[in-house]
Design a binder for these strands. Structure first.
Lengths: 118, 118, 118, 118
DNA sequence: GTGGTCTAGACCACT
DNA sequence: GTGGTCTAGACCACG
């Protein structure tokens, strides 16, 4: 019974990514109440402190906010979320092209590879 | 006087990547003698122990081999090197597409975003 | 639809501050009848329990008093109110100077900075 | 044997303030190596995790940076430090004047109070 | 029941 | 010896 986390990066980072992705893709809607820290921790089978650390990071990124004693909520700043999503995607492509370039693939070639992979 | 290394991953891993890339792109040719550990360490401004660890990793990957007292050499197994390069590229593309998909983007969209951002 | 409260301190504390300020500045006069707990709670959009807690705190400070079944009133002890106001101001100034000193600034310098920033 | 920390705010916040002040006032110079997390924790009589949290916050503010396995260092960005110091001071004055204003003191009056307090 | 904080103690990778 | 991570478990204020 292994945890579904890879070993190369901290668990809390992977938690950030998962929840962030859920927000960016609209699985959690703006202003929606998120599961409590303890529920999240239970869902992901991690210690509540680890979960807390991940959620604090998301709060630092302004993707969620906290209401004292009420819980945590998805940011209601839709444009921020949209922008984050776009930046994410652009960054992914940028990094990919960069790595392919390092391997000696030109941009044209690399984009062709990408499209072919699709 | 900063190290040209990021501090989110071990230095030796980053060294592996750089030398590996130099081999895959043919900057170091098959059977070519590599710089000594000390020379490498000096080039990259790292501790020789760290450099040594990186080269051991490359040897484990069969990309280089050691001749006792003579030094280290690039593998003469060209097809291995070719294959490694192709696998690298494929892996990069695969990961990129997976991440984009997770965000709900197709390749075209993402590339468009990237071009717009530039 | 945000509460006009910061979430770094308990709401009831912020309520205490607001009502206290209103009393110290004479918006509510000595012996004047205050709004009921429910009215206050409605004005500030908070839970009546929270409002109640804030008013209890003000009563503890002797700035207001309760007449059973009649309601709550501003203290008629004018000198007490005066003194509270002066102490407040003195405390504010004292703390400010202390913090500036800790940073190595004199008042003149700091005020100059402030004016420049505006 | 009480800890020299107030009870109204988290210890880690107070630790941030202290170390930050030491940096802003030049007690720790740019690029100077800071005490290790464990040393700091011992100095302040807190748990290393608490100290770590405070130092992470300072890193987030770019006032310190970490070299893997070597320790933590004061940022070498002098202008950033200068700016932070100025902003601190300005913010202190701004808040002070605001609070005095809320008590019914006008700006002139308040500044006079400040200067008199000196 | 909510989030926030703190401690104690452990393990790890890295140099 | 360094920082980083994680867990377990506890306590607290708040509403």
């Amino acid at each position: 019974m292994d945890h579904p986390f890879t070993n190369d990066r901290p668990i809390y980072v992977q938690l950030v990514e998962r929840v962030e992705q859920a927000i960016l893709t609209g699985q959690y809607r703006p202003d929606e109440k998120l599961p409590s820290v303890r529920e999240f921790a239970s869902m992901y089978q991690v210690n509540p402190n680890t979960m807390q650390k991940a959620l604090q990071e998301l709060e630092r990124k302004k993707l969620i906010y906290t209401e004292r004693t009420n819980g945590k909520f998805v940011s209601d700043n839709c444009s921020l979320i949209e922008k984050a999503r776009d930046q994410h995607a652009a960054e992914i492509v940028r990094r990919c092209l960069g790595e392919l370039d390092a391997l000696g693939y030109g941009v044209e070639e690399a984009i062709a590879l990408l499209k072919k992979g699709e």
